[in-house]
Simulated scan of single mutants.
Amino acid sequence: MAFTLVIGGARSGKSAYASRIAEAHARETGVCPTMIVTAEALDAEMAERIAAHRADRGETWSTVEAPRALAQAVTALEGADVAVLDCVTLWLSNHLLDDADLALEVSGLVLALSLTPAQVVVVTNEVGQGVVPDNALARQFRDEAGRANQVLAAAAERVVLVTAGLPLTLKP
């Protein structure tokens, strides 16, 4: 099944929009939606963010933690499943810090997304519209995220840009 890519800046409303898509699909099919998360609680502030996101979703969602093994998490989904993958840029950051082959990781994720029978909504950050970062690692992250977003957008059936909570369909 083809997937939907939801892209936007920080606090743009992209995760909430992706969740609404999944919840609507779950109501139609009678399934419990799944949130595939890539964040890791490496400090107290991130732990608070994760707890707030979990509380916002409520108890009707199941959660799969996949900070690195994202393709495997997608592959484990079944045909009736609906999932939100949140988010690609944190996943890329995890792999970047591990010095992984990011192009290989992204191609593996795209393959898993293209083969899964589940309905998947993929969330990613648009990071290329701001200032040029002042250090090499941040510039590398921005460049890798931009490349990954282009690959994902090309493979997605639907691409939606969310700004200020407002969705704008870019594809089809």
Rank of each mutant, 00 (worst) to 15 (best):
G58D: 10
C32P: 00
T60G: 14
A44M: 09
A22R: 03
E48L: 13
A39G: 10
G58L: 08
R49V: 06
V37H: 02
R27E: 04
A41T: 00
P33G: 08
T29F: 01
P33E: 04
V37G: 15
L42K: 15
T38V: 06
L5C: 06
S12W: 05
G9S: 03
A41K: 02
S62D: 13
A51M: 09
G30Q: 01
V6D: 11
M35C: 04
R27C: 00
E48C: 01
K14G: 01
T4P: 02
M35L: 12
A52S: 15
T38N: 02
T60Q: 15
A26E: 04
E45G: 06
L5V: 04
A16M: 08
R49D: 14
T34W: 04
T60S: 15
T29M: 02
L42Y: 14
T34V: 08
E59H: 05
A44H: 07
E59D: 15
R20F: 01
M46D: 12
E48M: 12
Y17H: 13
A41G: 10
F3S: 09
V37E: 13
T60C: 12
A22S: 05
H25Q: 10
M35W: 08
A41R: 06
A51I: 06
V37P: 00
A22G: 03
I7R: 12
I36W: 05
E59W: 03
L5P: 07
V31E: 00
T60W: 08
G58P: 11
R49C: 08
H53S: 14
A39V: 06
I50S: 15
A39E: 15
D43V: 10
L42V: 15
L5N: 04
R11C: 06
G58E: 09
T29V: 00
R27W: 03
G9H: 04
E23P: 05
